[in-house]
Design a protein around this nucleic acid. Structure first.
Length: 294
DNA sequence: CTCCAGGCGCCTT
DNA sequence: AAGGCGCATGGA
């Protein structure tokens, strides 16, 4: 019997406000989407996904197994995006410039384990290298996925916690992750032992969820904030990395004393409860226009 | 060649 | 409590 191409399901996700897929999928919140034809090719759970922009909607093509709720949850097409943008201080010319330049950059809602493992790779590594490490991890330890695209890259699911936990540190180092191998391995084993329950964090307020995440080896406040923002939708999470620290210092603090606590406090009073969204705009803005910080 | 990358844990004072 | 230091690897 001849194998026919895997069937595909189609979804149309309407959204209000702008939605720029390029800015959204290449701003550094996620690492494994591939530009493909006129959209992006990626994986949600165990399923291949192809997404492209329409006028006022996202057109999504998947192989069977994902329903519309799964996909909507990832792309967050249901949120009131205009309200988020309008919650920011109108007199902040830097943030407003970032919002204008990268209009339609959205936060998505990632799988917590994949997001956590991804940002465990981030310390002292460039985004390009993070992508490469994660792609190699997927193709080595992830389950291959049948794509509905006749021609295209082979896709792999993100390896689950037990799969990583069974690896040795040397196995993981072979993925070029260097000293981060121990952090990923130890965290996977801590999660398997039940030290932290990633599912339960969904129900906890921001501060308590952060306390849980930072119990994991290799997870400090920055990585925890990324996971809280990008996987749990805690929009008050404000990850302070080298770029954001530079931006805040240069653009907002002037000669005032700067440290992590002051930065966090500033994010609350200046940007408000959607500070994480502002952070991602500023991050993408200064990273792509570093002359702003000169 | 040197410098730096979406930091963190651990060790000193 | 606060500050210093090493860490793997590769791109610029």
């Amino acid at each position: 019997m001849l194998t026919s191409p895997a069937p595909a399901n189609f979804f149309k996700l309407a959204h209000s406000g702008m939605y720029n897929l390029g800015h959204t999928l290449e701003c550094g919140q996620t690492f494994c989407w591939l530009p493909w034809e006129k959209g992006y090719l990626g994986v949600l759970g165990k399923h291949a996904v192809y997404v492209k922009s329409g006028s006022g909607y996202l057109a999504v093509e998947t192989n069977p197994g994902l329903d519309k709720a799964n996909i909507t949850n990832y792309f967050q097409t249901h949120i009131n995006f205009e309200a988020v943008i309008q919650s920011f201080p109108p007199q902040d010319r830097y943030l407003q410039a970032a919002i204008a330049r990268y209009a339609g950059l959205r936060l998505v809602r990632q799988d917590p384990w994949e997001c956590l493992a991804s940002f465990l790779m981030s310390p002292l590594k460039q985004i390009l290298q993070i992508r490469q490490v994660l792609m190699k991890l997927r193709s080595t330890y992830g389950a291959p996925i049948s794509s509905f695209k006749k021609i295209g890259p082979v896709l792999y699911a993100f390896p689950d916690i037990p799969t990583i936990a069974r690896c040795s540190e040397l196995d993981l180092r072979a993925m070029q992750m260097g000293f981060r191998a121990k952090n990923l391995l130890k965290t996977s084993r801590q999660l398997e032992s039940g030290l932290v329950d990633l599912c339960r964090l969904e129900t906890l307020p921001y501060e308590e969820a952060k306390e849980q995440l930072t119990k994991l080896h290799g997870v400090g406040v920055k990585v925890a904030d990324c996971v809280l923002l990008f996987a749990y939708g805690k929009q008050e999470a404000f990850p302070v990395d080298v770029w954001i620290a530079r931006a805040l210092r240069k653009l907002y603090f002037g000669r005032r004393k700067f440290d992590l606590d002051r930065a966090t406090q500033f994010s609350k009073t200046h940007f408000g409860p959607n500070g994480g969204y502002a952070q991602q705009y500023l991050f993408h803005y200064v990273r792509n226009n570093p002359e702003i910080l000169e």
